[in-house]
């Protein structure tokens, strides 16, 4: 086997798993970092919003989602509230 390997050395090396590891890490670490930079009040905001909405409509826990994004010079807080019976979602940008 080894004798043959020597001749194979000239052909391009197959990409090892380290390339995949690097790619996955880059995505993961970028995700972790945006997660870290979110304001810490987001979960509380989401809980309290849900409480308020529940006074008026019978919504599910998953009905409210709060999304935070940081762009170059501005921060966008996106609230997505799905009301029952109504198929349409209310999309508000604050």
């Amino acid at each position: 086997m080894r004798l043959l390997d020597i001749f194979r050395l000239r052909s391009p090396r197959p990409k090892g798993s380290s390339a995949i590891a690097k790619e996955r890490l880059q995505i993961l670490v970028a995700h972790d970092r945006t997660e870290r930079n979110r304001p810490s009040y987001l979960p509380k905001l989401q809980r309290e919003l849900l409480e308020v909405i529940r006074k008026y409509a019978d919504v599910d826990v998953s009905a409210v989602s709060v999304n935070y994004e940081q762009e170059d010079s501005r921060e966008v807080l996106e609230l997505n509230i799905v009301l029952p019976e109504i198929i349409a979602a209310v999309n508000k940008r604050v």
Binding site: R13, P14, G16, S17, S18, A21, K22, L25
Partner: peptide
């Protein structure tokens, strides 16, 4: 051998 992340990675 491409099995392990390198220092640059």
């Amino acid at each position: 051998r491409g099995e392990m992340l390198g220092v640059e990675d």
